[in-house]
Each structure stands twice: as structure tokens, then as C-alpha cells.
Design a protein around this nucleic acid. Structure first.
Lengths: 121, 121
DNA sequence: TATATTATTACTTAATTAAGCAACTATTTA
DNA sequence: TAAATAGTTGCTTAATTAAGTAATAATATA
């Protein structure tokens, strides 16, 4: 499997659009399209930026055997959401976190988020 | 550690001279020198050839412990939240995501989460 | 020391990636 | 259906990697 297909498969597995990656990487859409379709080969620095946008390690583009269960395995869509949540003001955050708390049924959530919510509580 | 130093350290660990690698890779000595010294960045195909000459996998050039700044920049409390959210079932996720969507007012959220929510919708 | 081998640096030229713009296609949304 | 969004392709131009030659520096060996 070439690097372009690998990038695309990771991107789709993360539920991200090409546009999201492009804006995160700050590169031209035409170039990114050519990379995913194998027309052009990305440079290492470009691949590094793409990996950053996708939330994977550089080595994840190359090997297929060893995995995982670490921070980098979290779905990029979750990271997208976190970024959005962080844009909320404190009151809004409180609402969201309380709801999650209720759904998950884990009081420790508030403690875990104490750093973020310290002045809200 | 940059890629050049990594190549050099692997080469020296294998007890090979630069000349040996160069002849095996069939590339110019000046270019190889610049790569090892970080002046130039090798292309993926060149790095692949170097890896072949050194007898290592491409992923061996990239340490697995180099976590991504993008992910690591989030503090532990955020990671706690991610884990909790991921414990939700799809319906619950949908509620949380919809709420965040409403609060943030960004339609792109749904797109970002389409991969996660595809079978919920 | 003197010599040979290895490695680096300074050029030129060729090939490839990348940016930027425009146009086109395809898919989704209103 | 019409409009908006996502993705692709065709260009041009700029930046970078790579090949090649030659000269210099550094290191090892006789």
C-alpha cells in the first residue's frame, strides 16, 4: 500500500474530511489531493504535518504490526470536538460536562475536569 | 532527534561506513552526507532505499515515543474527558455532540463526527 | 610523516514537491 | 431543481531534493 492510500485510510478511519486535514496542515488542497491519490509523494515534513493533523505518529504511516491503545489512537473526531468544546465559555462548558457526567454516571468527571472548570464550579 | 542523526546512529550501530550505504543505495555521496548532517531532508523513496541498505524498517527511523504535540498539548483532564465520552454508547454520544453543536453553533461538528455517528443517525 | 581512504563542501543541472489560481466534477443540502 | 460544499485536475511558478563533478577536510594506515 502506498503512502497516499495509507493517509486516506487513516483519515477516513478517523472520520475526517480532506478539507479538515488541509486546513489543519495549512497546505494547498490540490497538493493534498495529489498526495492521497499517489500522484505526488509527500516530503517528510509534509507527512509530519499531516500526521499531526490526523493525530497519529509518523511511524503509523509505515508499519502495520504493533498497536496501540495509547493517546494517539483516539478518534480524530473526538479531538475535533474537544477543540470545539474548548471554544465554549465556562457556563456552556459546565452544561456539557454536567450532561456527560449524567450520562456516564461517573462523578469523577467533575474532578477530572476540575482544572478546566475551577472557576466555574 | 532529526532524521539525519537517526540515520547516522543506526548506520554506526550497524558498523557500516557511509560509503557502504552509498554504494548499496546507489546515490551520490554528497547528497548522503547532507542528509546525515541535516542539511537536506531525504524524500520518502530515498529514505526507503537507505533503510533497505541499513536493513531496517522505515518505521525504525521514527521513534514510537515521539508523541504528537497536537495531542499531548491537551492536559490530563481533557484526556480523562475523552475516555469518558468514549464510554458512552452511540445514542448518548449523539446527545452530547448535538448539544455541543448547538452551543458552539458550528455545523461542521456533525461532519467531523459523521464517522462516529453514521449508524446512529 | 606520508599516503590512502573517508567524509564534507561548493558548485551546476535535472527532477520533484509545493503554493496558488482557475475550472471542472461529484456529492450533499436546501 | 438549484445552490453550496468537497474533491479533483490543469496549469504556472517557487522551493527543495538529487545527481554529478571537483576540490577540500578529516581520519586512518603504512
Amino acid at each position: 500500500m502506498n503512502i497516499g492510500k495509507k493517509i486516506k485510510s487513516i483519515r477516513e478511519a478517523k472520520g475526517m474530511t480532506a478539507k479538515q486535514v488541509i486546513s489543519a496542515v495549512d497546505m494547498g488542497a490540490p497538493m493534498y489531493s495529489r498526495i492521497e491519490n499517489g500522484v505526488n509523494e509527500p516530503s517528510l515534513s509534509t507527512l509530519e504535518k499531516i500526521g499531526k493533523a490526523l493525530g497519529v505518529k509518523l511511524s503509523d504511516f509505515f508499519d502495520t504490526d504493533d498497536k496501540l491503545a495509547d493517546v494517539n489512537s483516539y478518534d480524530a473526531s473526538i479531538m475535533e470536538k474537544i477543540k470545539l468544546v474548548e471554544e465554549l465559555n465556562d457556563d456552556e462548558k459546565k452544561i456539557v460536562f454536567s450532561l456527560v457526567d449524567a450520562l456516564v454516571g461517573k462523578k469523577k468527571l467533575k474532578d477530572a475536569l476540575s482544572g478546566v472548570l475551577q472557576d466555574v464550579k
